[in-house]
């Protein structure tokens, strides 16, 4: 399979407002794509469109070879880590209980989940959290919780992984190691990853492709090219100045 996501002139309205328009963009299998853009730009909405959770007003969207009208068919092959951690932090679940939530789908209604423990263990191990299975989720550090949530989005062995600001609130070393983990998962499992983040530095260092969304797609391409685009210079002035002092080699390929 060549292109896992293909959007052409994609437009989405929410609450009567145009949130996305004219998004033309594609993602090849096995790529890690960083998505950047200011707050309210429509990044989360774009991920929700790929999941089939918002209605598409115009344009075309193909995901895993299926048009947007039939996204339910491939939903099981998409792993998702939502942005808002809407859940109660003190909820009485163990790390493996949290991962188990990722196994639920219409197919598991009124059924037992097959090989549940084995799949949960494998997912926890793939993010380096094998030892934490029975630990109460609420007692884990922010960085450990993020990894558990990543395991939850991996537990159904998806082909495509959508991560909405997974490294927000982590300190710099934790952000770096989280992105390195994504890089490793991409290579080992052949995963295709869409990573929304405000952290240009770590995203640019791991991404094969960088896309900047602000209602429409402003620039996308190789990180080295996107980072020097005039658009980005305006939008991200202060981070940009910092970036330009970095060795360009680290951002490019």
């Amino acid at each position: 399979m060549g292109e896992l996501i293909e959007a052409e002139g994609l437009g989405v309205n929410l609450g009567g407002r145009t949130v996305l328009e004219g998004i033309t963009f594609s993602v090849r299998a096995g790529q890690l794509t960083g998505i950047i853009g200011p707050n309210g730009a429509g990044k989360t909405t774009f991920l929700r469109a790929i999941l089939g959770l918002v209605k598409i007003r115009e344009g075309r969207l193909n995901v895993l070879g299926v048009p947007s009208s039939r996204l339910m068919e491939v939903r099981q092959k998409i792993g998702y880590m939502p942005q808002r951690q809407s859940f109660e932090k003190s909820f009485p679940l163990s790390a493996s209980d949290v991962v188990a939530v990722g196994l639920l789908s219409p197919a598991t209604l009124l059924r037992k989940i097959a090989n549940k423990d084995r799949r949960i263990r494998a997912a926890l191990q793939s993010v380096g959290m094998g030892e934490y299975a029975s630990r109460p989720f609420k007692d884990l550090s922010g960085g450990e919780q993020q990894r558990i949530l990543l395991a939850r989005s991996l537990v159904r062995q998806p082909d495509l992984l959508l991560l909405d600001e997974p490294n927000a609130g982590l300190d710099f070393p934790a952000q770096q190691s989280f992105v390195e983990l994504l890089h490793k998962l991409k290579l080992e499992k052949g995963l295709t990853i869409l990573l929304v983040s405000h952290d240009l530095v770590s995203v640019a260092s791991a991404a094969d492709q960088l896309a900047c969304i602000d209602r429409t797609m402003h620039v996308h391409g190789r990180p080295a090219d996107v980072l020097v685009s005039p658009y980005l210079k305006d939008a991200y002035r202060c981070q940009y100045d910092f970036l330009s002092t970095l060795d360009k080699e680290r951002c490019g390929h």
């Binding site: 339910m72 939903r75 808002r84 939530v101 639920l104 939850r152």
Partner: peptide, 8 residues
């Protein structure tokens, strides 16, 4: 949100 994304 996760429950919804999982198609429940």
């Amino acid at each position: 949100e996760m429950a919804e994304a999982g198609g429940l």
